[in-house]
Nucleic acid binder design. Structure first.
Lengths: 233, 233
DNA sequence: CCGAGACTTCGATGCGGGCCGCAGCATCGT
DNA sequence: ACGATGCTGCGGCCCGCATCGAAGTCTCGG
């Protein structure tokens, strides 16, 4: 009885075209802003805001404030599994039907750039992804940590990745939401050290002094060896 | 766009307390009548009927007419997986919260009985379950079939299970919705032959001439050997 | 053939909630 | 300090739909 009420409440969140469109747009794991989600759902921002508030309340979404933006993402893998289950019954091929272009149009910026003192763009997200799936990096609710194997791996690159190197007022390791990819990359002291080391090794160079980076020939080989990243990533 | 509409429509089916209660009551794989589901949901039969019609239309439920009853069950395992996913997000322990007693109160009838010329009750449903999971029996939309391995297994019991034995006007093998268990058991020519053979072997005897059956000592051993059923089943 | 029970359809009612216009905050850029 | 931008809260309109009463269809049992 009371149990089915909770189930209905959860399902009702998905049972609204606007909310379903927003959730579907988030199914690739990215975090999008309220305005972007409003466009994806075809509603006004106020309407989207109300929906997002409800979905956060219901535990479907997690929200992350960053400046004047509020990035929304699926609260857990369980939510993604639920949505896949619903799509399977709805007879939808699991093709995701949303390009939802976000961020800068500049291809070079999207590929690789700096974010303050650390790497960003597809390159940085790719690095974080690999470290996560190899158990070298762990992300928690509000922070992150380099594991022992991660410390060893970074050590071979010449990056000191021990928490003792954290200075006062600086988080040692933290996730930073990538502006163009909308997925976390590596920041904090470790992210800065890795970025500096990449410059030292000549793996990346600045494109005409902008934030955009060019991956050198040595960098392609280095990133491929250290993180298994193909040149396109 | 159009894809998310279908997803919303499907989710909206679950997003109603009454429908959620009905679906939850069906999650154990049984097939229940409209009236039973109305009671489970706490609504009038007319309301339940409308809900059930919508859910059949949406592909969530399958309906099976039998006399003046209409048995409703989940349309596919995908629906059950979807509901489990929703429950997981809703924070509900996967405990099913409905006893929903159905059928006869007589314990003997519920355990084992005849249904016209074949076996019924927990015993018969258990037999069908084992044959299904061992690939000896296959059920399709409107009928069923004994596979080669199933024919061999039944042969060792002395039951001829080849389709040539089907007589005119009699389906060789068909599923029959069990009255008390609300799940399919084996009927048709094969079901009748198996039942007759169980009597021959002395595995079951009628209890004082009623439909209820008693499983003999030899029957317990026989059913355990042939179908892996514990005495309780 | 007739009555009881299971189930459905139709129609009317009422409530919940999506949606947007407008206004109020917070933050960023110049 | 100013306007621009991203986001949220409020009030009101309106559509959709869940619900139930009453009546019709089908099936079973005698």
């Amino acid at each position: 009885m009371v149990t089915t009420a909770a189930m209905a409440e959860t399902a009702a969140m998905v049972g609204e075209p606007a909310r379903a469109a927003m959730l579907s747009a988030l199914m690739d794991g990215r975090a999008l802003t309220a305005t972007e989600l409003a466009r994806a759902a075809g509603v006004m921002p106020q309407t989207a805001s109300a929906h997002l508030g409800r979905m956060v309340e219901a535990g479907l979404l997690a929200v992350e404030r960053q400046g004047r933006h509020r990035y929304h993402r699926l609260a857990s893998p369980a939510v993604a599994r639920m949505l896949e289950g619903i799509m399977a019954v709805a007879g939808i091929g699991l093709r995701q039907a949303k390009p939802v272009r976000v961020g800068p149009a500049d291809a070079a910026l999207r590929a690789a750039r700096t974010c303050y003192d650390h790497l960003a763009g597809r390159l940085a997200v790719g690095i974080a992804d690999r470290m996560l799936e190899r158990g070298e990096l762990e992300l928690s609710a509000d922070g992150g940590a380099i594991t022992a194997s991660g410390e060893a791996m970074l050590g071979t690159l010449g990056v000191q990745a021990h928490p003792d190197h954290a200075r006062k007022g600086r988080l040692f390791c933290r996730p930073c939401l990538d502006w163009s990819e909308r997925r976390p990359h590596l920041a904090g002291v470790v992210g800065a050290a890795l970025c500096a080391r990449c410059f030292e090794l000549g793996w990346v160079t600045r494109i005409d002094g902008s934030r955009a980076l060019r991956v050198t020939r040595a960098g392609e080989a280095g990133f491929a060896e250290a993180f298994g990243l193909a040149p396109g990533d």
